[in-house]
Design a protein around this nucleic acid. Sequence first.
RNA 1: GGAGGGUUGGCAGAGUGGACUAAUGCGCCGCACUCGAAAUGCGGUUGGGGAUCAAUCCCCUCACAGGUUCGAAUCCUGUACCCUCCGCCA
Length: 428
Amino acid sequence: MLDIKYIRENFDKVKDVCLKKKVKCDIERILELDKKRRELIQEIEDFKAEQNKISDKNKRDEKEIEKAKELKDKIKNKEPELKITEEELNKLILEVPNIFSEDTPIGKDESENKILRKFKEPTKFSFKPKDHMELGVSLNLINTEKASEISGARFNYLFNEAVFLQFALIQFVMETLTNRKIIKKLANKVNNPFDKPFIPVIPPVIARAEIMKKMDRFDPIDDRYYFEKDDSLFIGSAEHTLGSLHINEIIDEKELPIRYIGYSTAFRREAGTYGKDTVGILRRHQFDKAEMESFIQPEYGKVEQDLIVAIQEYLVQKLDIPYQLIIKCTADMGKPDFRAIDIECWMPGQNKYRETHTSDYMIDYQARRLNTKFRKKDNKLEFVHMNDATAFAIGRILIAIFENYQQKDGSILVPKVLRKYLNFKKIG
RNA sequence: GGAGGGUUGGCAGAGUGGACUAAUGCGCCGCACUCGAAAUGCGGUUGGGGAUCAAUCCCCUCACAGGUUCGAAUCCUGUACCCUCCGCCA
């Protein structure tokens, strides 16, 4: 959420952000309520001050006690109005989207996302490349038919080498991100002064509704698996239980940055995507993902995202898969995002680039909701800046590997960097 | 699921109706001493909101929400969470 003071002082800018992010919110009403709130507070506090003066005295006479009782009634009568005002105000403030960075392109939809750079040319084949499902079925790696029968549409079984490939990818990510030397090298490249490695985490996959709201990930609720009995939800990403890890905490500045690399299953209902990507394993209700999450001082938030993107590029480059790096435009980025960058890997089966990684820089938008602060050297408190990003989304990166590494004879080569974790170099 | 005990500032921990403006210790910040550091000494240090150009003033904050009272960290009710033991369980 944005600071109410910021909204008050930057009315035009905030209105413009809503417009460009295509988020509906009533900024006029917010200011109106904000004014009303402050007036009510003034009124109530004057009564309270008077009341305190009476009860702080050592001796009180009958008259004063009468007066105190009157004041108490006056306060009681005013308070509900303040409460209603604050409730409406808070609700509206939560709907206001985050501001966006200067380099974010202004655009009406995803077609106006900007390509920042490309790695390699799309893979060329001397034969007509198959898509990952053809490969997966013929090599007995993926089964979606049986999964539909057992669990419903958009589920899959992974079999055989695909399973080992998943574990190899996770092992590769975990080793890379916990390696100080590699982090240092990548940090230097982007002028990020911290070589602190990531802490590996396996987080819970269920979060309370309240937590999801504070992460600003509760909505769209239709995309979530919600357990009414427990007022809890399946997470849609490890971000949801990693980013909330320091809720209501004050972190010592010396501890920053705090970097996590979490591995978990993610669950999405994919409501509203009927008919989209129904073949294969690109869009699933359940998938496993390694996710980065970072907490850092505001002045380093931007270079932290640069580091995170550098890590993502490093990982994909090690797999030697062609990709393009894009910065999302205002209409395509998320409501809490300040700057959103995606990696789209080349998928020969579809003959196009598809999103495999995303990196969101939130500035203090989530931290303000979560109440995650840090204590500076001068003892002052400030909200931390948060970054979250994909390390590997297993399903999608498997697609990229299968399709880019396929051979004429229908087999799939294993990327070199993963071979040390496996006892096969080729599938099929 | 059953029984009991808890929740106090960054942390530990005292506090059973008015002097709590929350003891004390640790940590942190500043200063002194020192070539520098450690040790020591002195001072500061919960967080949030409102008014004001500002100095400053006011309100709230002892898990949360209500209640009793002129007055609540303290008494009452409800909720959440944590711990211990028992039961069930991978």
